[in-house]
């Protein structure tokens, strides 16, 4: 049995590897092929040209989109962590009376279709001047990011033995300072996991950013501007796509453990 099924297993895995990598390689091909030659037959090996990257990065202001996305991502992570960490901590360490309604509320926030939140905020933000700003976007992102952050932080707090915090409380610490001095240093991995997963989500988010930005688009919205280019400038489309995924691929390579831990923590039963 073992020996008969091995080749089949290798075949499945190999097929998955090729299927996963080919489109990623093709983004590179699109970005670096000569735009005129690109309209001939597809080629798999050639001398790459990197002109399109410069055109996209400076001439078309992709750099501004990157700055906008970096700010939006950082602010979203900060708010989500600041809000979710104390709540997750107290739900693990104390009997919170309205826990069930709070959990249902988080679930509802996660389920809501993006536009039922984004379109009303389109109006509201015009009045309070948060339209087209990183802070406004980061605020709206909390609707999906806080449920996520609370779930993951609960999983990490549960891994800490209660005795650790009890000792601090007996020594006269308040719960707040126990969270700050005892628990947070012990859940650094959890904080990193939340930050990384929210970072990936926000960096790639389309729907809300599309509704709530215009002159200051985030990276995905800047990439979406090239979809009209599909007919002619494939190299710029490819370069913009490539630039948008490079930081995320770096994340995947260096933070694989955190990403996998975060994804499974959201699922753990």
């Amino acid at each position: 049995m073992q020996s008969r099924s091995k080749p089949f297993i290798y075949l499945v895995v190999l097929l998955a590897i090729v299927m996963t990598l080919f489109p990623l390689y093709w983004i590179f091909v699109l970005a670096t092929r000569d735009p005129v030659q690109a309209f001939g037959t597809p080629k798999f090996l050639f001398v790459p040209q990197f002109d399109a990257f410069g055109q996209v990065w400076t001439d078309q202001g992709f750099v501004h989109a990157v700055i906008m996305s970096v700010f939006t991502t950082a602010i979203t992570i900060l708010i989500a962590l600041a809000v979710a960490t104390p709540a997750a901590y107290i739900m693990v360490r104390r009997h919170v009376r309205r826990r069930q309604p709070l959990i249902v509320w988080l679930l509802v926030a996660y389920l809501v279709p993006d536009f039922v939140v984004a379109i009303p905020f389109y109006n509201i933000f015009q009045y309070i001047h948060l339209y087209d700003t990183a802070i406004g976007l980061a605020l709206v992102y909390q609707v999906f990011m806080t449920p996520f952050a609370v779930t993951i932080m609960i999983a990490f707090f549960r891994d800490i033995p209660p005795e650790v915090g009890e000792a601090a409380l007996i020594d006269g610490c308040t719960s707040a300072s126990a969270l700050w001095r005892v628990y947070l240093p012990l859940t650094r991995a959890g904080v990193a996991t939340v930050a990384i997963l929210i970072g990936i989500n926000v960096w790639n988010e389309v729907t809300i950013a599309l509704a709530l930005t215009s002159d200051h688009p985030t990276v995905p919205i800047a990439v979406a501007a090239y979809k009209g280019f599909a007919a002619l400038k494939w190299n710029q489309l490819g370069a913009a796509s490539f630039l948008s995924i490079v930081p995320m691929i770096a994340f995947a390579l260096f933070a694989q453990r955190h990403i996998v831990r975060g994804l499974t923590a959201g699922m753990s039963r």
Binding site: I27, P220, A224, L237, S244, I259
Partner: peptide, 25 residues
């Protein structure tokens, strides 16, 4: 470990990038 890293790569991409790249392909 390498395979896990490889198979989460598509998850790292924006839906916009996925769709316009496949549209071109």
């Amino acid at each position: 470990g390498w395979l896990r890293t490889l198979f989460i790569l598509p998850l790292m991409m924006s839906g916009i990038v996925v769709s316009i790249v496949w549209k071109v392909m």
